[in-house]
Simulated scan of single mutants.
Amino acid sequence: MANATKRLQREYTDLVKAPPTWVNASLVGDNLQKWKASVQGPEGTPYEKGTFNIDIDFPNEYPFKPPTIKFITKIYHPNINSEGQICAEVFSSWSPQLKVTDVLNTIRSILVDPNPENPLDAEIAQIFKTDRNAFNKTAKEYTKKYAK
């Protein structure tokens, strides 16, 4: 646990000192193992102009086990289910070299480029593959309704 605390303290300090322009992160209370982040929807995507709130929970075994990430803001996305869980390769191929910023970058990249071949929501993935206009329209409606 001591290693996790040191590592999380360093990552949190780095993120606060030099945050990416599209994300804000803060601790929940003073608990280093619970973070809240808000991610701006990337330009040129149906999520543009949206702000998506995310909970990040770090296990005691961090960095040897990945954090648990959950979207609190409802989002229409093939790789994020209605409970806010994310299907992202970074979690299945987790490595202790990865940092929170890598996780946040992965989240941003799946917003820019969803992977319908590895969906958490098969129905949304099917719409994404077969009718991109319908997908974009619904994703924009969700963004407008839930991510403002």
Score class of each variant (00 low, 15 high):
1 M>S: 12
1 M>V: 13
6 K>Q: 12
7 R>D: 06
9 Q>L: 13
10 R>L: 05
11 E>S: 03
13 T>N: 10
13 T>P: 00
15 L>C: 06
17 K>G: 04
19 P>V: 02
19 P>E: 02
19 P>A: 04
20 P>Y: 00
22 W>L: 06
23 V>C: 13
25 A>F: 05
27 L>Y: 00
28 V>F: 03
28 V>N: 06
30 D>T: 10
30 D>M: 09
31 N>E: 14
31 N>L: 10
33 Q>P: 06
38 S>M: 11
39 V>P: 07
39 V>F: 02
39 V>I: 15
39 V>Y: 05
41 G>L: 02
43 E>H: 08
43 E>A: 12
46 P>W: 02
47 Y>C: 00
47 Y>P: 00
50 G>I: 06
51 T>L: 12
53 N>Q: 12
55 D>A: 07
55 D>Y: 01
57 D>A: 12
59 P>E: 10
60 N>I: 11
61 E>K: 03
61 E>S: 09
62 Y>T: 05
62 Y>R: 05
65 K>M: 12
66 P>C: 02
67 P>D: 07
69 I>N: 06
70 K>I: 09
71 F>M: 14
71 F>C: 13
73 T>E: 01
73 T>G: 05
75 I>S: 10
76 Y>A: 05
78 P>Q: 03
79 N>F: 02
81 N>P: 01
82 S>F: 09
85 Q>G: 12
87 C>H: 04
88 A>S: 15
88 A>L: 15
89 E>I: 11
92 S>H: 13
96 P>Q: 10
98 L>D: 01
99 K>L: 11
99 K>V: 07
102 D>L: 03
103 V>Y: 00
104 L>T: 04
108 R>Y: 13
109 S>Y: 02
109 S>H: 10
112 V>L: 14
112 V>C: 15
115 N>D: 10
116 P>A: 03
117 E>I: 08
118 N>H: 11
119 P>H: 03
120 L>M: 01
120 L>H: 01
121 D>I: 06
122 A>F: 05
123 E>N: 13
123 E>I: 00
124 I>N: 01
126 Q>R: 13
126 Q>L: 14
127 I>N: 05
129 K>G: 08
132 R>P: 06
135 F>A: 08
135 F>V: 06
137 K>L: 15
137 K>T: 15
138 T>W: 03
140 K>V: 04
140 K>I: 04
140 K>A: 13
141 E>M: 13
142 Y>R: 13
143 T>E: 07
144 K>V: 14
144 K>T: 15
145 K>H: 08
145 K>I: 10
146 Y>N: 08
147 A>C: 01
148 K>H: 08
